[in-house]
């Protein structure tokens, strides 16, 4: 894996792209620097000249109306978007100083550092234990003791250990929707990622489960960078440090969450967050 692994382990950041982060926190490092990103599905342009930088140990929220490209943008960050046929991109996404579109950069390697949690809880039709152990196993960990430790630590980090510790070998489909989603987060933590992408992780959950997932996100950001797409503006306001507002494939505004919600510069942002459209 070479330089990328070293870069991540040494926590080497990329030299901040200051024009985008107006007030870069000196202690934090930029891990994603997206420049002039364009994306087409066939002939339809879904992302138009997106420029963004993402800090480590922060929650970055992506908001915008349906079809504005926010999910596409998220899936581009771990190149999952390439599973869709006929996708074409231009521009660069620097992840810890390396362009993820470089041919030398394998998407399998990228995705071990950039985990993803999906909109609908999608555990595998396996036991709870096997769900968590899946990631480490595909990366070659066979040692049973080590796997046991990884499973316990991941479930503890996702605050679901106490709920499932007595039924680790039961099928994951027996869990409630909210538990399944936290299981999916735990599964994602098991590969020890650097960034966690979340695509509307609470849209299929009830308010109580949503609160638990939100609390979990607050814990996780101490260690990980979290980029979350959400339809729920209160949620963005509650949990994120920075917010990007997407409209028709463009970034209209990107700033500290407090600023976006109290004093947006662009009138379209204001219209959207005050509920005048979307």
């Amino acid at each position: 894996m070479g330089t990328l692994r070293e870069a991540v382990l040494k926590n080497e950041g990329y030299k901040a792209n200051d024009r985008l982060l107006e007030i870069p926190l000196p202690s934090k490092k930029v891990i994603y620097d997206i420049q002039h990103l364009n994306l087409w599905y066939g002939n339809t342009q879904a992302l138009k000249d997106v420029n963004l930088a993402v800090n480590e140990k922060e929650v970055t929220a992506i908001i915008g109306p349906s079809g504005c490209g926010k999910s596409t943008y998220l899936k581009t960050l771990n190149r999952m978007v390439e599973l869709v046929p006929d996708v074409r991109t231009t521009g660069t996404i620097m992840y810890r100083g390396k362009n993820i579109f470089d041919t030398s950069f394998k998407e399998e390697e990228l995705r071990t550092w950039v985990g993803m949690v999906f909109q609908k809880p999608n555990p595998f039709p396996k036991s709870i234990y096997e769900n968590i152990a899946y990631g480490p196993k595909i990366h070659g960990i066979r040692n049973k003791k080590l796997l046991d430790q990884i499973v316990e630590r991941s479930l503890r980090s996702a605050y679901i250990w106490d709920e499932v510790k007595d039924r680790l070998h039961d099928n994951a489909y027996g869990l409630s929707g909210g538990q399944q989603q936290r299981l999916c987060i735990a599964r994602c933590l098991a590969i020890e990622p650097d960034v966690i992408l979340m695509d509307e992780p609470t849209s299929a959950l009830d308010p109580k489960s949503t609160r638990k997932v939100e609390a979990l996100i607050q814990e996780l950001k101490k260690e990980f960078a979290i980029i979350i797409v959400t339809h729920n503006m209160q949620q963005a306001a509650r949990i994120s440090d920075r917010t990007a507002f997407f409209l028709n494939g463009e970034v209209v505004e990107y700033d500290k969450t407090g600023r976006i919600f109290s004093n947006p510069t662009d009138s379209r942002t204001e219209d959207y967050i005050s509920g005048r459209f979307g």
């Binding site: 399998e108 995705r111 595909i138 994602c188």
Partner: peptide, 8 residues
């Protein structure tokens, strides 16, 4: 997708 998302 869940599997690809973990680098499989």
């Amino acid at each position: 997708e869940a599997s690809y998302g973990m680098g499989a």
